[in-house]
Design a binder for these strands. Structure first.
Ligand SMILES: [Mn+2]
Ligand SMILES: [Mn+2]
Ligand SMILES: [Mn+2]
Ligand SMILES: [Mn+2]
Lengths: 120, 120
DNA sequence: TTCTGAAATTAGACATGGCTAATTTATCTA
DNA sequence: TAGATAAATTAGCCATGTCTAATTTCAGAA
């Protein structure tokens, strides 16, 4: 859970300027109260900083985790695309797969990808 | 959850002759009461047939699901191995990845695998 | 500057999947 | 065949993640 949240929060801050619960809820396909509860767990976990009714920020730890997750996400998607899988399926499958890929496997994906040079 | 259980039950029946909670618990790394509870859920779901204190059997639906899962598992592991990943990592990662791989992606894995002909 | 509508939170419920401690059952051995 | 022991179950707890309904807060329009 934490991984998808920090990943999305980082992306929202980058593209929207700020991360708001309502947006997070839409993107993750859950309801706002779920987001509120989960954000408060992320805060307890030291990944997020925020005051009630305000936008959400990542702590340094949160930013590190977000970076790690976004890299994994990028690599997994790129790898699936390189196998000829359509974008929608690649995105959907990657969203689950990314949480189960060890660094070893990730490196193997990167390596298999290198010849193509078609990712970020 | 159901997928890992039926997959394992099928395997135990095949290799051990029967599937027992104590064995399932060991293999899945959980405690026996957890297995009891989950098996009863599988029974409710119509995947498993059994009487208390006896071995566990798969219903037809359970066998179908097990077959589907075992195929996916096989393909994912074979695919990871074909990328040069070591067996232990391949097994571990596949155990998670298998639950997030669409049929489309699975077929892409199979296709990428074909030239090698190194899987069951 | 006040008010109103959207956003956010709180409260409380539910499902899933894990645990320990205590108890029951089945089986194997003496 | 009677116990002892290992397996299984029950009871009850906890954490996670989801929801709906009700309430509170904030910010922009009047
Ligand atoms: Mn994800
Ligand atoms: Mn992702
Ligand atoms: Mn699995
Ligand atoms: Mn498996």
């Amino acid at each position: 859970m934490a991984e998808d949240y920090v990943e999305l929060i980082a992306e929202l801050i980058e593209t929207r300027g700020e991360a708001r619960p309502v947006e997070i809820a839409e993107r993750l396909g859950v309801k706002p109260p779920t987001v509120t509860k989960n954000i408060s767990r992320l805060k307890t976990a030291g990944l997020v900083r925020r005051e009630p009714y305000r936008a959400i920020f990542l702590t340094d730890a949160g930013q590190d985790l977000a970076e790690t997750c976004r890299r994994r996400h990028r690599i997994v998607v790129a790898f699936l695309l390189s196998l000829g899988i359509d974008e929608e399926t690649a995105e959907r499958d990657a969203e689950g797969i990314e949480h189960h890929v060890s660094e070893t496997t990730l490196e193997a994906f990167e390596k298999a990808l290198k010849p193509h040079r078609r990712y970020k």
